[in-house]
């Protein structure tokens, strides 16, 4: 395709500036109205100025297009930025409608993959390790998590150049890889949660049943014989069920459990286990 418009070509230096703004400021100006649009425009500003800087009215029109609603995973956003900029570098202002459509089309899928991978699964795995060790006073898990966060930030450097080079071809290739990666990491996360329930939730039923002269501990003589950690499992099931109710969000369920704990503590029905 011919380079039909009169904009300037992007240089590696322009892209590097965009990339640094994405890595250090990826959600600046977050707002309820159009969410991540300010961060997006702030990041691409050096590239947009380089391309259209000679004609402020063109730059204004293009930036107004880029200010549309934008919300995706902050950890994968630069893939969309890269595709956006490679299109604009190729076709300039003619790509305006295509860019707007592609941003809208891609932000949903990348939000889904990125939010589960970087928002849920990775924090679950590293958070579990950090908390499991941290509760015993061991900082190794926390340091491991910080290290992983720095490595992930470093890896994000490669999103923009890759997406810019490959353009739209990237979506089908990377899409499959990311989906598989997310699915596999999710499996790992679920397995870790399974191990977490009996190890970190230390709640027991404290009262003893006295039959004649024999004292029967509900916890050790009865519940533990049925299934280890049966109280935590039952509580998780209850919370899971409550979260599925229509009028209950996570904060309300936390309040319910907070108040419930105070009541059950006073009634001596539940206690902190060893």
């Amino acid at each position: 395709m011919m380079n039909s418009s009169e904009h300037k070509q992007l240089t590696d230096k322009d892209l590097r500036r965009v990339n640094l703004r994405y890595m250090f400021g990826g959600q600046l100006g977050w707002n309820y109205e159009r969410m991540m649009n300010v961060a997006y425009v702030h990041a691409i500003l050096p590239a947009m100025s380089a391309m259209y800087g000679e004609d402020p009215e063109v730059l204004r029109d293009m930036l107004q297009m880029e200010m549309q609603f934008y919300n995706t995973s902050p950890f994968l956003s630069a893939i969309i930025t890269g595709i956006d900029l490679s299109l604009q570098n190729e076709s300039g202002t003619q790509s305006k409608d295509a860019v707007a459509a592609i941003k809208t089309g891609l932000m949903g899928p990348f939000a889904a993959v990125g939010d589960s991978l970087f928002g849920a699964v990775i924090p679950t795995i590293f958070g579990s390790l950090a908390a499991y060790m941290g509760i015993k006073g061991n900082p190794v898990g926390v340091l491991l998590w910080l290290l992983a966060a720095v490595v992930i930030l470093g890896l994000r450097y490669f999103e923009l150049p890759l997406a810019y080079r490959e353009g739209k071809k990237l979506v089908s290739n990377v899409g499959n890889l990311l989906n598989n990666l997310t699915d596999a990491a999710t499996l790992m996360g679920v397995l870790v949660i399974g191990g977490l329930i009996p190890t970190v939730v230390k709640v027991v039923v404290p009262f003893k049943l006295t039959i004649g002269k024999k004292a029967l501990s509900i916890q050790t003589d009865m519940l533990d014989q049925i299934l280890p950690a049966i109280v935590p499992i039952a509580l998780v099931a209850l919370a899971y069920w409550l979260l599925g109710r229509k009028h209950l969000n996570s904060t309300r369920v936390i309040w319910i459990f907070l108040l419930g704990s105070i009541v059950l503590y006073s009634l001596k029905l539940l206690a902190v286990g060893a």
């Binding site: 589960s116 999710t186 499996l187 679920v190 949660i193 939730v201 998780v236 899971y240 009541v263």
Partner: peptide
């Protein structure tokens, strides 16, 4: 009661996650 809540509340965190992740698919794990 707050001390007990500190021990109980992790179940809510776990339950939120179980809602978010495809648990049925990976129930075995």
């Amino acid at each position: 009661g707050l001390k007990l809540a500190g021990a109980v509340l992790p179940v809510v965190g776990i339950a939120i996650l179980l809602h978010y992740l495809p648990v049925n698919k990976f129930m075995a794990f």
